Simulated assay, not measured.
Amino acid sequence: MKKRVALILFGSLLALSLCACGGDDTASTTQGETADTTTTDETQEPVDTSSATVGDYEVSIGDASMISDDYTGEEAFLVNLTFTNNGEETTSPMLALMVEAYQDGVQLERAIIGSEDFDAGSESLNVQPGGSNEFQLVFTLTSESPVQVIAQEFLGDGTQATKTFDPATLA
């Protein structure tokens, strides 16, 4: 019985000592120094910058138009983009970039289109270093509100190309 109590006490002591090793994420400061508590506001909307260097790539958000969504029968939003590979390896816009569209603050879903006006395979074409490729993406709209398109490097530093479109003014 004494051995059991001793083992329980030893196990508890070991667990407590391991918990104490975790520490916290706040930085300690010496006298006269202050801790940097600057935070970023993730709800801040990006400014329209239709072209940007994102990592090893240049991305440019071009024009847009409305197109019929074959799957739902509703109108969809088609956007043209240009991808330039300034890296050292061959890659495609599909693998290198993350392109999203937002309407009323909510991300839009990709549309399923079977139209001659849409080149569905253009996003997956490989681009050699120094080469450029124009590609298209289509999104299903949820309202008549403006659409914000954001393009950034997949797992990049957050640098973005952004452009806002008003569906009411698109043909």
Rank of each mutant, 00 (worst) to 15 (best):
D25I: 13
T38R: 02
V47C: 07
T29M: 04
C19P: 00
T26L: 07
Q44I: 10
V47M: 14
G32M: 11
A35E: 13
E42L: 12
G32L: 11
I61F: 10
S28L: 13
T40A: 09
S12P: 02
S60D: 05
S28F: 13
G23R: 04
V54G: 02
S17K: 04
V47G: 09
I61S: 06
G32I: 13
D41T: 04
G32N: 13
E42Y: 14
T34W: 11
D36C: 08
T34G: 15
S17T: 07
G23Y: 02
D25E: 10
T53H: 12
T39N: 04
S60P: 00
G32H: 09
V59K: 06
T30R: 13
T30D: 13
G55S: 11
P46M: 07
G55K: 06
Q44F: 06
V54H: 04
D25L: 12
T37E: 12
Q31K: 07
I61C: 07
G11H: 08
I61W: 08
A20L: 08
S28H: 10
D25R: 07
D25A: 14
P46Q: 01
S17I: 05
L9N: 11
A27L: 14
L16G: 02
S12A: 07
E58M: 13
T30V: 15
E58V: 14
D24Q: 00
F10V: 12
L14T: 05
A15F: 08
A15M: 09
Q31H: 05
F10I: 13
S51N: 08
S51D: 08
G11Q: 11
E58D: 15
S12C: 03
E33Q: 14
T39E: 06
L9D: 11
F10A: 15
E58T: 14
G32W: 05
T38I: 04
E42P: 10
G11S: 15
L16P: 01
Q44G: 02
E45F: 10
I8V: 14
Y57M: 08
T37Q: 12
G22N: 00
S28M: 10
T53D: 14
V54F: 06
E42Q: 06
A15W: 05
G23W: 01
C19E: 01
D36Q: 11
F10G: 10
T40C: 06
D41E: 03
D24A: 00
G22P: 00
C21N: 00
E33S: 12
L9T: 07
S28A: 14
G55W: 04
S17Q: 04
V54Q: 03
